[in-house]
């Protein structure tokens, strides 16, 4: 029997083929993770509320945005850059918070009242009755809307950070990051959240100026 030598298959071009596939997947791959402002919409009530519980005007922080992207905050014309500080002042509602004694907050009549509530780590505490109300026009640009939302969320985040830093020596952001492992830190996080709850209410939109 003649011994025929089988020549080896040339594998030199295998790398080329693999490269081709590699480049295809490199091009089609998308690795962008979505980022944004996460919000919760209120559920539609099952039956229309006949008599919504009255909220005192002093407890509401009113933000209006018109069709020309102008801001009216608590009856005052304002730039977007001033909104954060103003909102923080309102939400905190007393310069010596959290050690206030006066529930009605009589010394600051323009700022919200307090109510006594149970907080996880600190026990009973006086908490501000703050609510932020945001109303925009149908002609408001989405860019402006996101900016206003962003400033309001930033106000809450900054207050939470400052409060947590003062009480626990850590910012709220750090607490959130570390809360996965430890129950004690989670408890602290909940306490800070309870002290400054994010209450941003969006009023039903009005159609006043500007086309859609």
């Amino acid at each position: 029997m003649a011994k025929r030598e089988i020549s080896e298959i040339n594998a030199g071009s295998m790398a080329d083929i693999a490269f081709l596939l590699l480049i295809f997947f490199l091009v089609t791959t998308t690795m962008d993770t979505d980022t944004g402002l996460i919000r919760r919409l209120p559920a539609i009530p099952d039956e229309p509320q006949i008599d919504p519980p009255p909220i005192k005007k002093r407890n509401i922080f009113e933000v209006l945005v018109n069709a020309n992207d102008q801001l009216l905050v608590e009856g005052e014309y304002m730039q977007i850059t001033e909104l954060r500080a103003k909102a923080k002042e309102f939400i905190k509602s007393s310069p010596n918070f959290p050690s206030v004694v006066d529930v009605t907050n009589a010394s600051n009549p323009g700022l919200p009242e307090f109510k006594s509530e149970e907080v996880p780590v600190f026990g009973t505490m006086l908490l501000s009755k703050q609510i932020v109300s945001l109303q925009n026009d149908n002609g408001t640009s989405y860019n402006m809307y996101v900016k206003v939302q962003n400033e309001l969320v930033a106000a809450y985040n900054e207050l939470r950070n400052e409060f947590a830093l003062q009480k626990f020596g850590k910012t709220y952001t750090e607490l959130v990051q570390q809360s996965k492992g430890s129950e004690a830190i989670k408890e602290k996080m909940r306490a800070v959240k309870k002290v400054y709850p994010q209450r941003i209410s969006e009023a039903e939109p009005k159609k006043i100026g500007g086309d859609e």
């Binding site: 925009n136 026009d137 149908n138 002609g139 408001t140 640009s141 989405y142 860019n143 809307y145 996101v146 939109p205 159609k207 500007g210 086309d211 859609e212």
Partner: peptide, 10 residues
């Protein structure tokens, strides 16, 4: 899109 008006978003 950031130039959209709020009407449609609402």
């Amino acid at each position: 899109d950031k130039n959209t008006k709020m009407g449609i978003v609402t």
